[in-house]
Structure formats: C-alpha cells, structure tokens
Amino acid sequence: MNITEIIIVSLIKIVFVLGITLLTVAYLVYFERKIAAWAQNRIGPNRVGWQGILQPFADVFKLLLKEDIVPEKANRIVHAIAPMIALFVAFTTYAVIPIGPNVNIFGYDISLVVADVNMGVLYVLALTSLGVYAITFAGWSSGSKYSLLGGIRSSAQMISYEISMGFSIGGVLLLAESLRPIDIVNSQAGLWNAIIQPIGFITFVVSAFAETNRLPFDLPEAEPELVGGFHTEYSSMKFAGFFLAEYANMIIASAMIVTLYLGGWHLPFEQSLGLSGSWLTVFQITSFFVKMGAMLFFFIWVRWSIPRFRYDQLMNLGWKVMFPLSLINIIWVAVIIMITN
C-alpha cells in the first residue's frame, strides 16, 4: 500500500468507527433508559417512533435547541474547552481498538483497527488520563461550588483508580509480551485472560467503572449532594458533550475489557466450528461486538442495582483494596509464567 492508499483506508476507517461510535452512543442512552425502566417495572421511552426508537434523536434535537447558559463568574474559554477535551479524548481512543482480525478486501490486507500502534495500550492509558482534565477544567471554570467539588472529587478518583488500572494491565502485558492490542487479543486465542487472572479482571473492571465515573462511582456527579457535580453549570450542546463523552467512555471501557480480558474477537471453540476464512472473520467480528454489548449491558445493569459509594469508601477501596489486589495479580501472573516456562 502506498501512502495515498493508507490515508484513504485510514479515513474510511475513521469515518466508519466514528459513525458507529456516535450511533452506538446515542442508542446506549436509549438502552440505558429502557433498562432502567425494566429494572423498575416500567416500560421506558416508547413515544418517539416505534418503541421509542427515535428517542435519541429527539434528545439530541432538544439539547441542540436549548439555550447555552454560561454562568457570569465562569471562565468562558476554559468552560467552553472542557467538553471538547472530554469528547476529543473519548473519540481518539477508538483509534487503537481492534474489532477483528485482518481482513482481505479488494486485494488489500486491512487490519480492523484505525491505527495499529505497537504501544496501543499505553496510548489508551495516556489518553484516558487526559480525560481528567476535561472534568477538572469544567469543575473549576464553572465558578460554582458544586462544580468545583465535583471536579476535585473527580481528579482524586481518576488518579487513584488509574494506578490500580495500570497495574492490572501489567499482568496482561506480561502474558502477551506486547503493548499492541492485536497481539494481546491473539495471545488469548486459547484461554482468556479473565480466566487466567481473575483478580486482575475484577480490579480492571472496577477501575474501569471508576474511570468512566459510572455508578457506583459517580461521585463527581452525585446528584443528591452536588446537583450535577462538574456539569452543574452546563447546558445545551456543551452539556451534551459531557453526556456523549461519558457514554463513549463506557464503550471504550467495554472494548478494552473485551480486548484485554475477554479474548477480543476470539472464542474458545471458534476453530471447532469449521467455518471458512471469511465467515470466520464475520463470526469473530460479531463475537467481539456481542461481548462488548454484554459488557455495556453490565455497565447499565450495575448502575441500576448498586448504590453510590461514599467518598471515603471510594478512596479506601481504591488505595487499600484495588491497588494491593492489582499488585497481587502481577505476582500471580509472574508465578504462572515462571511455572509454565
């Protein structure tokens, strides 16, 4: 492939991934509301379109039409930049998530990832760490005590859980001996990391919840105490920015969990199905999305089941439980490698 072709292919991939992501985000909001309703014996949105299928568009339309209010005491520039950072971080992360094995289209061998970077995992960690700026900026620039408290909580929470997150990944990297997401997926072709290192899996999932600010760790928002936390003073499309970013982050977190621990597109029995090459690829891509969908459902399901942690409980959990556990996990993986070698 020459450079033009690479650019064209990459552009196509970017458009494809962005489109899918935006649509998924929109429908994730829809399903969040539906699942919430079901968990509470309600029906959920069912007025806009068949079974409320057009609800997300109505929501977006409503947000677009709303007045954009900026508090008098806000720092206008930072206030406007914050949601952009959030969205930027959320969407650029998709670049390194592989959704299937390489495919052969029109004679080109194309990897199903926008950028096949050899240190992709590090890239993800780096970018998600940037996400804390969005929230901190939003909290600080709003000029409101609720926002500020939300921002402070958020930065403390995200920094704390990043540590256990990073260490949990350590075990995965030890096994894959690579930072490249595709290598990590392929290393799980036989046995998923989730089974080899369950402690790492649990700490990663918990940290992922904390990193995405989802319940039970949504302290930056915490409606009962902080009104809306860092986004109290946001309205219209700026608010929508944060809203989208949260759901986009959920998708990334799900994708990362699937990639790192649930074998990516691999299923343990896939070879025994006897599918031919291209059908196998389709099957594998589908399995990746099904796994991701299951993880997303799990995210939402947890939200409507478990109450919010108290702030001190959150910090205790992060530093006194998750951090040691992730260290134990690294030792455990190291011991396994020692024994099997």
Partner: peptide, 21 residues
C-alpha cells in the same frame, strides 16, 4: 452481595410492567 443485587434487578427486568399508558 453485588451478585445478589444484580440478580434481583435482573429478575425485575423480566417481570410484568406496571405502567399504564
């Protein structure tokens, strides 16, 4: 305990709905 809670909410998801349209 989390698993118990999740089981409970899941059970409710498949129960009949009370909403009157």
């Amino acid at each position: 305990e989390i698993a118990k809670g999740l089981a409970l909410t899941f059970k409710n998801m498949i129960r009949p709905k009370f909403t009157m349209e």
